[in-house]
């Protein structure tokens, strides 16, 4: 049963992140929740790539025949982390500007500019 734990943890973190996104009151909190959601994707990737009894795929000091975890998934996670950091930077920059222009950083203030207008 415990072998499902990595998937369950990834799923739980995803749910927590989404809950945070929906109930957020502060844009920085929103951005961090987005990061949490992305973390759950890293965890899922690494869980999928894990090999029971495998070690890190660095062959400087181990033999070729040693069982290792999947390097492809780790490369994907690395890419995902960098992308996550990049998006976080952009969103936080936008948050700073919102704070300066509007004086509020409540995501509920980011209401669509839909107006009740006749044709």
């Amino acid at each position: 049963m415990l072998s499902w734990l990595p998937y369950a943890v990834a799923g739980w973190i995803f749910l927590v992140g989404c809950y945070g996104l929906v109930t957020s009151r502060h844009l920085v909190h929103t951005v961090v929740c987005l990061n949490v959601v992305q973390s759950s994707t890293y965890l899922l990737l690494l869980a999928v790539g894990w090999t029971r009894g495998g070690t890190a795929p660095i062959f400087a000091d181990i033999g070729r025949s040693r069982s290792v975890t999947d390097p492809v998934v780790q490369a994907m996670t690395l890419t995902d982390i960098v992308v996550g950091a990049a998006v976080t930077a952009l969103l936080l920059a936008l948050t700073v500007q919102i704070a300066k222009r509007r004086g509020t950083v409540d995501p509920r203030a980011l209401r669509s500019f839909e107006q009740e207008s006749e044709e």
Partner: peptide
């Protein structure tokens, strides 16, 4: 200098990133 632009960009950013994360779970 235009608050609407920044708001729009944040909406674009958060929603698209969340969508991308779901796509990544699918790929995984």
């Amino acid at each position: 200098e235009e608050p609407r632009s920044i708001f729009a960009a944040v909406e674009l950013g958060v929603v698209n990133t969340l969508g991308a994360s779901l796509t990544l779970v699918g790929i995984t």
